[in-house]
């Protein structure tokens, strides 16, 4: 399977994602410059974390106008897999490919730390190797990760099982103390209605090697490979 990692000016997790896909998974991968318009050679595109355009206006607000985003809409419509991590998630929200918006973290600070996530739906390309209800440890690093959606939209997300990850404590309990950024309904990651576009605030690429204190994130990437093989 062929992977792409998007590079916007200001992306800073592009090389980390590239490393995991190529060196840890052993898959084929190339960088996709933000001005590119042809993604037909790819099966999965990663929108990495970072500060595209410095996030000076609003996280992801400028990157969504990049040429590659037009191509991405087409790519996603045709069923291509897209995973937006952190700033990548923010870009997907700004582009309207996923519902909702990001507010500043409730403590108005940038937060970088390991958190616990509860896996809510394992019948997806991104989570099929997790166990339902499994609690995993993956770090976050963001200023604006306080996910917001109106109640109607939330109901839809729930009905369509679009919520993949929720912030929880070590035992999988949802308590405000373990909701680091104040996200609505503890939401850490969601997929599109069609199920092929994932946005998540935690960084799975930072938890993909034993030496980095957790390998839980690697299961996201491995799930994708697994799903692709089965298709």
């Amino acid at each position: 399977m062929r992977w792409g990692v998007a590079v916007f000016p200001g992306s800073n997790c592009d090389q980390d994602c590239f490393y995991v896909v190529r060196d840890i998974l052993g898959e084929q991968v190339r960088y996709v410059w933000y001005e590119e318009t042809d993604l037909r050679d790819l099966d999965c595109l990663i929108l990495p974390g970072g500060f595209s355009y410095g996030d000076y206006l609003r996280a992801g607000a400028i990157a969504r106008f990049s040429p590659v985003m037009e191509a991405l809409v087409d790519f996603a419509e045709k069923g291509g897999l897209v995973i937006g991590i952190c700033n990548g998630f923010q870009i997907l929200l700004e582009a309207g490919l996923l519902p909702g918006a990001m507010l500043r973290n409730k403590n108005i600070h940038f937060i970088c730390k390991y958190v616990y996530l509860r896996v809510e739906n394992t019948h997806t390309p991104f989570t099929n190797l997790f166990k339902e209800g499994q609690v995993v440890r993956i770090p976050i690093a963001h200023n604006e990760g306080n996910y917001y959606i109106e109640d109607e939209g939330l109901l839809e997300l729930k009905n369509d099982k679009q919520i993949l990850f929720r912030y929880s404590d070590k035992e999988g309990r949802l308590t405000p103390e373990f909701n680091p950024n104040g996200a609505k309904d503890f939401i850490a990651g969601i997929i599109s209605k069609e199920g092929n576009v994932l946005g998540m605030m935690p960084h799975p690429e930072r938890a993909s090697e034993k030496i980095l204190n957790s390998q839980d994130g690697l299961l996201v990437f491995k799930s994708i490979v697994n799903w692709f093989k089965r298709c």
Binding site: C13, D16, F110, C112, L212
Partner: peptide, 16 residues
Amino acid sequence: VYEQYDHMVQTNTVLL
């Protein structure tokens, strides 16, 4: 202090 700093980007940080 340090939880406000991204101390993991580049995925080399073994000891937090």
